[in-house]
């Protein structure tokens, strides 16, 4: 059985050991607190970066929507232009066709005109000859 003095010494040793462990724990707590603060700051930075990225992404999506709208308008204009070009081409083709028909008609009529003129001239000469012969016969 330990004497009271020994018991007191033992208790003092225990208290000293506890105090040492407490000091170590406090130190660890301080280190951990510091780590925790660093991590909190990093998390805040990361959150801010993430928020910025999301903001940029949203902005990019808005701009993409505007670009898409403009491309769609451009595409519609190109389609209209194609339709106009096609109708202009068709009109031009029709006009060329009409011109070709008109030219053929003109050539045909030009040929006929000379045929008619020749026929009229021949008939007139014939008649003139006949009249001349008749007049000569009548005089005799």
């Amino acid at each position: 059985m330990a004497t009271p003095t020994e018991q007191i010494k033992e208790l003092r040793d225990t208290v000293a050991g506890c105090q040492t462990r407490l000091a170590v724990s406090e130190e660890r707590i301080l280190v951990l607190q510091e780590e925790c603060e660093k991590l909190t700051a990093q998390k805040a930075e990361s959150d801010a970066r993430q928020a910025k990225t999301e903001e940029k992404l949203a902005e990019s999506q808005k701009q993409a929507a505007v670009a898409e709208e403009q491309i769609a308008l451009l595409q519609a204009s190109v389609e209209k232009l194609t339709a106009r070009q096609e109708s202009a081409g068709e009109r031009q083709a029709r006009s060329k066709e009409r011109m070709a028909i008109n030219e053929k008609e003109a050539e045909k009529w030009s040929g006929r005109f000379w045929q008619i003129a020749l026929a009229v001239w021949t008939t007139a000469m014939g008649l003139l000859g006949a009249v001349s012969l008749a007049v000569l016969g009548f005089k005799r």
């Binding site: 993409a64 670009a67 898409e68 491309i71 451009l74 595409q75 190109v78 232009l81």
Partner: peptide, 13 residues
């Protein structure tokens, strides 16, 4: 894709 599409449209025009 939008870049390629608009470039193709530009070439078409």
């Amino acid at each position: 894709i939008l870049g390629l599409a608009s470039a193709a449209l530009g070439r078409d025009i």
